[in-house]
Design a binder for these strands. Structure first.
Lengths: 114, 114
DNA sequence: GCAATGTTCAACCCTTCGGTAAAATATTGT
DNA sequence: ACAATATTTTACCGAAGGGTTGAACATTGC
């Protein structure tokens, strides 16, 4: 049933989102494109570390890096985020419905046993 | 701005969701509660491995384990999932809006330069 | 051409992760 | 009491994660 869904690279997307530094980078990027150096400045991390984080975000499809001269400008790509959100939304509905149905069954069973 | 949000344990939730085995366990659990043994049966994994995965899901708040005799029955807890979904939904909107605003600005700038 | 700037790459360190197997801990049924 | 069943805990292992530093690679400006 779920095999029909794309399951784009949920592992990668969720893994990318599981790190607060990376979420902060994404938030910063929502304000507009930025170079790797500019992105790294606010963090108490080496430039290389931030570059690695950007690699994770890029592989997850959340961010694109484009060479512009000697700097790389990073931009948010909301599509992958939308994928993850859609997955969560779908499953949340699915699970809630299932659980509601089960509760209803329990209610019925309790009624019948009276 | 975002500091007002709970940021419940997004690290934990997203990390928990980043593993396909754990997502499969969650899906299985949507069909109804199940014991650790029953949950582990479909997987080519040791019982201990599945028990560990359940620990991750439990710490993330996605699943509850309750002792019933010598077995532990696991149930889905959609609340944590809803938290993650809400976070994603909010940010998706926020990012999309920001990006749209930026594009609009670029358009204005282009117009003015003509 | 050369020095400075921006970014990545490579090597390394330590921790966490996902897995195993085996022992420990309940609980049940006889 | 005992044996079987259900689950967790305890090492342990190899791979991956997140960090560092220093060298390598482009590009820019003089």
């Amino acid at each position: 049933m779920f095999n029909l869904m794309v399951e784009h690279d949920l592992n990668g997307v969720f893994h990318a989102l599981a790190d607060p530094t990376r979420r902060a980078i994404l938030d910063r990027l929502a304000e507009g494109e930025a170079t790797v150096g500019a992105l790294s400045r606010p963090f108490p991390l080496s430039l290389a570390a931030v570059s690695k984080h950007l690699g994770v975000l890029e592989r997850a499809g959340l961010v694109t890096r484009e060479a512009r001269g000697r700097e790389r400008v990073c931009r948010l790509d909301p599509a992958a985020l939308a994928d993850a959100r859609a997955w969560l939304e779908f499953h949340e509905r699915f699970w809630t419905d299932r659980l509601a149905a089960l509760e209803a069954l329990v209610g019925t069973a309790r009624d019948e046993s009276r």
